[in-house]
């Protein structure tokens, strides 16, 4: 379970998160929507400890992420994260991209890591691209590779930060299908997304962020069907 309690976070003078309270249970799929600059990405990078927080706390399976005694490198094995920009390691082939952290972080042997990499890459439909360098892949394929790379670490949680926003429209579908497949398999996921249709169909709950505050959170039917706040109504009519 991911527990976020009264989290405040600012960059210098700019208050980016203003008291976020949120719990994500095992197996849940939570979508996060909201305008640009509302703090969605920042929340994800706080959850896996890439960013420090000012106050409050975040617990992942009971471990406090920002406690001094927490081994972040160990904690991050539990939490996979995929970003908007495709972050392939350009000097490694696709299969090596997926093997690297397994070898370095989990200490898996080469055959073990390779077998797992092949399994995950086939799972996301890249079984025929193993020995290719990332520069030869389309954006959608690179993004699926990044997903396979995260999944190969056997994470308990997956965080997705607008993983389709930098893609050409015709490539969005293949990546969303991959996310749908993961959700159907029971992965616990937090998806920051602009794809309202996806959020509506796949999520157990949807959270709406506005100016650093989680303004609303509800089941998709309720949140999209009967938005309570003026801000959410404005946001939804702007995106539709």
């Amino acid at each position: 379970m991911i527990e976020i309690e009264k989290v405040h976070k600012s960059f210098g003078q700019l208050k980016v998160l203003k008291g976020i309270d949120l719990r994500v249970a095992k197996g849940e799929v939570l979508s996060v929507i909201g305008g640009s600059g509302s703090g969605k990405s920042t929340l994800l990078t706080c959850i896996n400890g890439l960013e420090p927080i000012d106050s409050g706390r975040i617990l992942v399976d009971g471990t406090e992420v920002h406690a001094k005694s927490t081994d972040l490198n160990k904690l991050r094995r539990k939490i996979g994260i995929v970003f908007q920009q495709w972050n392939a390691f350009p000097h490694l082939t696709v299969v090596e991209n997926v093997m690297l952290a397994q070898r370095k972080v989990l200490g898996r042997s080469k055959p073990e890591a390779e077998a797992e990499a092949v399994r995950q890459l086939s799972h996301v439909g890249l079984g025929d691209k193993l020995k290719v360098y990332p520069s030869r892949l389309s954006g959608g394929q690179q993004q699926r590779m990044a997903i396979a790379r995260a999944l190969a670490m056997s994470p308990h949680y997956m965080l997705f930060d607008e993983v389709t926003s930098a893609l050409d429209p015709q490539l969005v579908g293949e990546v969303l299908d991959t996310l749908r497949m993961l959700a159907a398999e029971g992965m616990t996921m937090i998806c920051v997304t602009h794809e309202m249709k996806f959020a509506r169909e796949v999520s157990d709950r949807v959270a709406f962020f506005h100016k650093g505050v989680m303004a609303e959170i509800a089941a998709p039917a309720e949140l999209f069907g009967a938005p309570k706040s003026e801000e959410l109504r404005a946001f939804l009519s702007a995106t539709h």
Binding site: L50, I81, F83, N87, L100, A150, M153
Partner: peptide, 21 residues
């Protein structure tokens, strides 16, 4: 920086990120 952030978020240490990426 985004490439390095991806490496760190996979659990690589500063040193591993330095030497492998």
């Amino acid at each position: 920086g985004t490439t390095r952030r991806a490496a760190r978020s996979l659990g690589l240490t500063w040193w591993q990120d330095m030497t492998s990426i």
